[in-house]
């Protein structure tokens, strides 16, 4: 089955966005299972990013509107080392709860990358050049997963993304458990 393209508005961030900025530690108390409680991870996703760096290039853009549980943005475009810091899986979970489907960055901290994939939360795509200076918050994007291409609609340009490689099967399965079942590992 062909993977569906991901399209929607971009939210742009800088370098070294750590997991405390993605979901501040004080919010790590809600249940990740309870359907009512887990929505708070969406509300507080990216609430730790300093205001001036929230939604580049202008900044001052709230990722989620006050009192909302979901964001209007679908794809995060960030600088290097996205997801560094703590190992909290709540970070990719919070982005998923907010409605994010994919992140595009030149590179990731390894625990975040692994959590995003093994938990099946968001797809972490690597780009070959840092796109956080080219894409503006609110720009319409489309990711062609089959060809590993990012279409930046306002600029009319397409940028190659690194193919997912070894982990593509886990991403397609929806996470490590689904993958392990499919391969009869237990």
């Amino acid at each position: 089955m062909k993977p569906k393209p991901i399209s929607g508005k971009a939210f742009v961030l800088g370098d070294d966005i750590d997991t405390d900025q993605i979901i501040p530690a004080q919010h790590l108390v809600y249940s990740l299972e309870d359907p009512e409680e887990r929505r708070f991870y969406g509300r507080y996703a990216l609430s730790g990013v300093p205001d001036v760096q929230s939604g580049l290039p202008l900044g001052g853009v709230p990722f989620t509107r006050p009192d909302a549980f979901e964001s209007e943005f679908t794809i995060i475009v960030a600088g290097k080392n996205f997801g560094c810091g703590s190992s909290r899986e709540h970070a990719p979970f919070a982005l998923q709860q907010a409605g994010i489907q994919a992140v595009i960055a030149p590179g990731y901290a390894r625990i975040f990358y692994r959590n995003a994939i093994d938990g099946g939360f968001v797809i972490p795509f690597e780009c070959f050049e840092d796109l956080s200076g080219l894409v503006k918050t609110g720009d319409e994007l489309e990711i062609d997963r089959e060809l590993s291409l990012l279409h930046h609609k306002p600029g009319g340009k397409k940028y190659p993304l690194r193919p997912l490689g070894d982990v593509a099967d886990i991403v397609e399965a929806g996470g490590i458990f689904e993958y392990a079942r499919k391969h009869k590992m237990f």
């Binding site: 990740l32 899986e89 625990i111 959590n115 093994d118 938990g119 490590i176 458990f177 590992m185 237990f186």
Partner: peptide
């Protein structure tokens, strides 16, 4: 090394 909740659950079972 550090891991996430899903990987930890996987270890708990396997």
């Amino acid at each position: 090394t550090g891991i996430g909740n899903t990987d930890a659950a996987f270890i708990m079972g396997t």
